[in-house]
Simulated assay, not measured.
Amino acid sequence: MRQTLLREAPVKARPSAPLNALRTFEAAARHLSFNAAASELFVTPAAVSHQVKHLEAYLGVSLFQRNHRSVALTPEGAALATSVGELLGQLDRALDRARTRAPTELRVTTMESFAAKWLVPRLHRFHQAFPDVRVRIDTSDERADFHRDGFDVGIRYGPGNYVGVCAEVLMQAPVFPVCSPTLVSDSQHRLQHPDDLRHYTLLHDEGASGRAGVPAWSDWLAAAGARKVNAASGPVFASIYLAQEAAASGHGVALGLAPLVEEDLRQGRLVRPLDQELRNAYAFWLIQRETAQPRADIEAFCQWLRDEQCRPLVAIQ
């Protein structure tokens, strides 16, 4: 009996993913601008448009809604942008690790004030304990994209409710008045009662305005029972860091955040002329990427941060 041999038809290979088009799309999606993406990638806007059309043809979907002078992501484009941003971030980090045999680099994003006043004075102790881990600190107040920007650990001052990451309270941030010791010693007016502040310049942080639960001078004066002080008087600074530095320079009295003034209080650059302190709805948060495979160096650094916030200041050399 004759048997017919049936052969399976060869499976047609799927064209490889257009990686250059994906990188171009990610930049255009992040900026929502072909011109800005072109500047970042050092190509022309026409080249960006060509790569995006190439990717759309490959996928068979529209990724952008093209308007007269702007572009917007379609739902399909928005979903792809999130995934591509994460994957390209992972790819970049893998290439960095393969490119060099340098010690492990751990990227930390935090505010300049926290880095200067709390983290940097303590960082030598982490290096002593983990000499093979190179810590790179990036300072910014902007919300960080851990996947796109490649950060491993974040420290932020805020109310919490951070989405898509693992977050825990690192330190509370009570508020109290601080000033230079020379300010009170050289003044004709003693500073022993909250109402005595009427003889001094109040230094304000504009970041406290409009943030529910973040104490401003009006809150502190009311809680302290001061009735003779104009809470609105005095200069306004763009950050608490600048206000505290102005206080250390003798320009007035600022409301200090406990973690950011600890070292200056220890060194005598600042003093607490009045004891009253207020609770703060904002705190310093420790943030990590959500991952199924935690890295040993990240876990070590996070545990070191937890331990450091409990260590006495006299241990800092």
Rank of each mutant, 00 (worst) to 15 (best):
A21Q: 03
P259V: 02
A13E: 12
E245P: 05
L73E: 04
V314G: 09
R143Y: 13
W285M: 06
S218L: 13
T24F: 04
S239G: 06
A72W: 06
T139L: 00
A246H: 05
L183F: 04
P15Q: 12
A226R: 02
H54P: 10
F176T: 04
D275Y: 00
A79G: 05
G252S: 07
A296T: 14
E56I: 07
S113N: 12
R148K: 15
A94I: 01
V48P: 14
V175W: 07
E299H: 00
Y162R: 13
A47P: 08
E277W: 03
A222Q: 13
Q90N: 03
L106A: 03
E142D: 15
E142T: 15
P235G: 03
R306T: 01
P15C: 02
L119H: 08
G225L: 09
P103M: 06
V214N: 08
A247S: 10
L257R: 04
R99P: 10
V108Y: 05
V48W: 10
E40P: 14
A248Q: 05
C179Y: 01
P15H: 10
A248G: 11
Y162L: 13
P273C: 00
R69W: 08
R134P: 09
H68P: 04
W285Q: 09
G213A: 03
A258G: 01
F151V: 06
R101A: 15
H251L: 07
R107D: 05
R211Q: 13
N280R: 06
V135H: 11
R97C: 14
Q244P: 02
P174W: 10
Y58M: 13
R198F: 00
